[in-house]
Simulated scan of single mutants.
Amino acid sequence: MASELISTDKAPKPMGLYPHARKVGNLLFLSGIGPRIPGTDEIPGLKLDKHGQFTEFDFEAQCHSVFKNVRTVLEESGSSWDKLVDVTVFLVDMKRDFHIYNRIYAEYFKENQPCRTTVSVNSLPSAIAIELKCIATI
């Protein structure tokens, strides 16, 4: 079965050699997508001092930004938010952030309710606190 790699400058640049998404048949597989702002790599709601310690942390801002980035990749790939069928969520601090994430997730998924798995991870490739890996239909 043929597949197509998809990359867009409207989403944060991948942090390695991989596409934003890959179409295979009528399925769309999104690579892990975080909240970084396209073109700047700035992380919403996060400020670090010269020692790399948090001086400002707003997890809600990261949640809204990661959903925006996922929506962008879906749309650039010929799919849409309502066609998501599976979401895997990676949280760096499950105890601190899960209840916030769960509340915001419910706002975005009132109509479409894809399958979801949420896992706690020790760290992600940058100072982000959340990343999503998604599957959608086209």
Rank of each mutant, 00 (worst) to 15 (best):
H51L: 08
Q53H: 10
L30G: 13
G39R: 00
I33N: 09
D49M: 07
D49N: 13
G52C: 06
R36K: 14
L48S: 00
P38R: 01
D41V: 10
L46D: 11
Q53Y: 10
T40R: 06
G32D: 15
K50D: 04
P35T: 12
H51Q: 13
L46N: 06
K50V: 04
G39W: 03
L27A: 07
D41A: 13
L28Y: 01
L27D: 09
Q53A: 07
G39C: 06
I37P: 00
F29M: 14
F54A: 11
G52D: 01
G34P: 14
F54R: 12
G39T: 03
H51D: 15
D49R: 02
G39E: 03
I33M: 13
I43H: 10
Q53K: 02
Q53T: 03
R36T: 13
P35N: 04
L46V: 15
G45Q: 04
G45N: 06
G45K: 02
G45F: 04
G32T: 10
E42M: 09
D41M: 11
L48Y: 00
F29Q: 08
L30D: 14
I43M: 11
G34F: 09
E42N: 08
S31L: 07
T40A: 05
E42F: 09
F29G: 04
L48H: 01
I37T: 11
G45P: 03
K47M: 13
K50A: 03
I37D: 01
L28R: 00
P35C: 14
G39S: 02
F57W: 09
K50I: 04
S31Y: 06
Q53S: 07
L28T: 03
E42K: 15
F54K: 11
P38C: 05
F57N: 06
P44Y: 06
K47T: 09
T40L: 08
F29T: 05
P44R: 08
L46Q: 08
T55I: 14
P44W: 00
L48Q: 02
P44T: 01
L48D: 01
H51C: 04
L30T: 12
F29H: 08
I43D: 03
L48C: 03
Q53F: 11
G45A: 06
P44I: 00
I33A: 12
S31F: 08
P38S: 05
G34W: 10
E42Q: 12
I37V: 14
L48A: 02
L27P: 00
L27F: 15
I33P: 04
G32P: 13
G34K: 11
I43T: 07
I33H: 12
E42C: 02
G32R: 03
H51N: 12
D41E: 14
D49S: 04
